[in-house]
């Protein structure tokens, strides 16, 4: 036991290990809270972008100017050209949508003639993007219905 003026000094040294433990505990707790907050924020952002993607995808599937016989999910091979690309761009401008997009339709049918088509911008590397693939049909004037996969990617810059 220490007496006199030196007692306080010794007490401080005795409690250094305890203070270190408290600092570590608080650090771990704060890091966990930060991780939880980041996780929650990311999830909310992802959910928002996912909803935008679903809505945008539905809009393209029912975009009258590209459809065959106004049937949702059935595109007209004759309309999948540069003009169709412009029409899509005019109707879905990125500055109005609030995100950028790329739409690619890959003809996966067994026919020799393919109706591959794409619109929008080149996909950019971005921190937050969402992609979905949707089975669709491309119909032509000869009664052929080509199975195809439409891939839609949206992203924010």
């Amino acid at each position: 036991m220490v007496v006199g003026d030196e007692a306080g000094t010794v007490d401080i040294f005795e409690e250094i290990p305890a203070i270190l433990v408290v600092i570590v505990a608080v650090f771990i707790f704060l890091m966990t809270i930060a991780e939880g907050f980041v996780s929650y924020s990311e999830r909310r952002e992802e959910d928002r972008l996912t909803q935008q993607l679903e809505s945008f995808c539905d809009s393209i599937l029912s975009f009258e100017l590209l459809l065959f016989g106004s049937e949702i999910g059935r595109f007209d091979s004759f309309r999948l050209d540069a003009e169709g690309r412009e029409k899509l761009h005019d109707s879905f401008r990125p500055d109005m949508l609030g995100f950028h997009y790329n739409v690619t339709i890959a003809d996966v049918g067994l026919y020799e003639e393919k109706y591959d088509w794409s619109a929008g911008e080149e996909v950019r590397e971005s921190a937050l993007s969402r992609t979905t693939s949707v089975p669709v049909i491309i119909s032509n004037a000869y009664g052929q219905n080509h199975p195809a996969m439409m891939r839609v990617t949206i992203w924010e810059v």
Partner: peptide, 15 residues
């Protein structure tokens, strides 16, 4: 996805 795949599948033709 299943609904869309079913629609595309059943409506698709082969040469």
């Amino acid at each position: 996805l299943t609904t869309r795949t079913s629609n595309a599948l059943l409506g698709s033709t082969v040469p």
